[in-house]
Design a binder for these strands. Structure first.
Lengths: 151, 151
DNA sequence: ATCAAAACATAGCCATTGCTATAACATTAC
DNA sequence: GTAATGTTATAGCAATGGCTATGTTTTGAT
């Protein structure tokens, strides 16, 4: 090791180590919550669209196998986000519904924002799906403001 | 199940199932490559900054333990992205260097873009760390154009 | 009322990405 | 040249998120 924090002379692009760590930590944390958000959001959409959200439909939409969904739903139920009524579909609890709403809104803003930038709808959808989970409140507000200004 | 693809009458926000699947598939794929990109990018930065990238430094920057890094480096080496010279640090191959360059540029554009939107530098950094991996070429170009217009 | 089809549950596997604890090996200082 | 220090390797564990294969149960059609 050469030097340790050459006191305010960053001879390169390398940011402060602690800051660096924080970014990665935050990103790792986001990655853990992404799936949960995807699920509740999808469940809310399915319920809104067809009145129910079955495992098979969720699996089909996500492009994963049914047991994968089953395992995940167990976790969501344990976390108090959903309630399972066998052969009747999955329903969101108060908390799950709230999370879904937030996710949905954020998703929409991100997607609309990308479209407003001139990105094609298909690409915007795909990118938004990945980006939405990494957008802080501040950034989300900036996106919103941008959209408002545009109209 | 009620209806199957009500032919162009999307009574809700629910997009076409195949499209939906594609978005999620793409996102899952991105999630798998994220870490690799983070590593090569960090390695490039470390080498640029201090002339070498040791496991311990990488671990410290990422906020993970050294064996975690060791395992990952093995994979990167197997993938032909890096070359390990024990007790001398890690070096990027041609391919690794190329990937690092691309990642770095993309990261920079995303971060600058967020800053240009008025987001604070600290938040921009954190968000960019998460967002960069989910930005398609088209979106990246849109960001670039936005930055160009601004100057 | 029965039985086929659909939906769900469960078991057991794999890969990935973390961790701690500990061993082995190089470098460097002396 | 040896000892202390720093660096890397390895073993073994856990959680997560996939999978296939195979039950079990409910529903709904006849």
């Amino acid at each position: 090791m050469k030097v340790k924090k050459a006191a305010a002379i960053p001879e390169s692009t390398l940011v402060d180590a602690d800051t660096h760590v924080e970014s990665f930590r935050q990103t790792r944390h986001n990655r853990r919550t992404e799936l949960v958000e995807d699920y509740v959001e999808l469940i809310a959409d399915l319920i809104a669209d067809r009145g129910e959200a079955r495992q098979v439909d969720i699996a089909q939409r996500l492009g994963v196998a049914q047991p994968t969904v089953a395992k995940m739903l167990k976790r969501l139920a344990a976390d108090g986000l959903i309630q399972q009524r066998p052969y009747r579909g999955v329903f969101l609890t108060e908390e799950g519904s709230s999370l879904a709403g937030k996710s949905r809104e954020r998703h929409q803003i991100v997607e609309n924002f990308l479209c407003a930038l001139g990105i094609s709808p298909e690409i915007a959808r795909v990118d938004a799906e990945g980006i939405e989970h990494h957008v802080s409140l501040e950034t989300l507000n900036a996106f919103r403001d941008f959209l408002k200004q545009r109209n």
